[in-house]
């Protein structure tokens, strides 16, 4: 369990919101044909903003 947690922290930097935001951004890139670039970049940027407001670790 601890090893899994360390792998998660290594990949995500300990962020809870980043993996979810990224998944939504990729889904938007595939499923919003007219707004693909805008939706993808917008959600990726919002994910970064949200992640920056998490508690520092």
């Amino acid at each position: 369990m601890r090893a899994l947690s360390e792998i998660y922290d290594f990949i995500t930097g300990g962020s809870i919101v980043t993996p979810f935001g990224l998944a939504i951004a990729i889904l938007a890139a595939f499923w919003l044909p007219h707004l693909r670039a805008e939706a993808f970049v917008g959600i990726a940027a919002l994910t970064f903003v949200a992640a920056s407001f998490e508690r520092p670790n």
Binding site: T12, S15, E54
Partner: peptide, 8 residues
């Protein structure tokens, strides 16, 4: 993921 971790 790495980029957000470094930049935040």
């Amino acid at each position: 993921l790495f980029g957000i971790a470094w930049l935040r």
